[in-house]
Design a binder for these strands. Structure first.
Lengths: 114, 114
DNA sequence: TCAATATATAATAATTTGCTTATATATTCA
DNA sequence: TGAATATATAAGCAAATTATTATATATTGA
């Protein structure tokens, strides 16, 4: 196990990123699922650019990774991130958001690809 | 033990508050110490109004309490806050900041009152 | 009571954030 | 190849955040 020294400055940066309802829910969903942009658009009832911009912030600090699968770009959590254990511990305290994916499945808007 | 259901919206709010280096460090210090405003001014080398405003934000959500002792107003963490366990878990992952208080003592600017 | 100290608050300015609109790129499929 | 779909990015703008400056209030102690 790699012991990471958490720095206050970096911790604050991560917390700030998570301090937004949309991004926090995104990351919580990504904890257990890969999701593509259009799924987030549907879940949050937000515009595509807005979702892309939130994802970009998460990607810029390396908290999530993107992975193209055909037409779609799937996002997943980066478990190798230096501060992943820190994030994981926070996510562990949050309520499950799986119902949001269940909802997509019900509507037939869940993307299951490749 | 009181089981609290963490709500995403409130969790995001707390994380946003902690997502600032000054406030995060403040809360970490308050985890184990009561501190007054002028100590924070000294520690962060910031203006008094700036410190007061950070404290106000923390106070507005009830994360910290204030307590006048003579000339000074001491702040302490509110362990009865609904989300205190959530916050505590985060703080537990952060490095000790006690050296900052040690520094004050060395300079003779630590306030020990009442 | 008056000066000094500690703090809060209000007003303002600078910066940052997050959304929208517009547009560009990549992929799929007919 | 061309239209449709998915996504990213850029530009512009409004709202939120943070710091500064100025001022008000409360306490202490001479």
């Amino acid at each position: 196990m790699t012991k990471t020294t958490i720095e206050m400055e970096k911790a604050a940066l991560i917390l700030k990123l998570l301090g937004d309802k949309t991004r926090l829910t995104m990351v919580k969903l990504l904890e257990n699922n890969d999701c593509c942009v259009c799924e987030f658009v549907e879940i949050f009832q937000a515009s595509q650019p807005s979702i892309s911009q939130h994802l970009r912030k998460l990607r810029d600090v390396g908290l999530v990774k993107e992975d193209r699968r055909g037409q779609w770009i799937f996002y997943s959590i980066n478990k190798n991130h230096e501060y992943f254990p820190f994030v994981e511990q926070i996510l562990g305290q949050l309520p499950d958001q799986e119902d949001k994916l269940k909802e997509l499945e019900k509507n037939g808007t869940r993307i299951t690809c490749c």
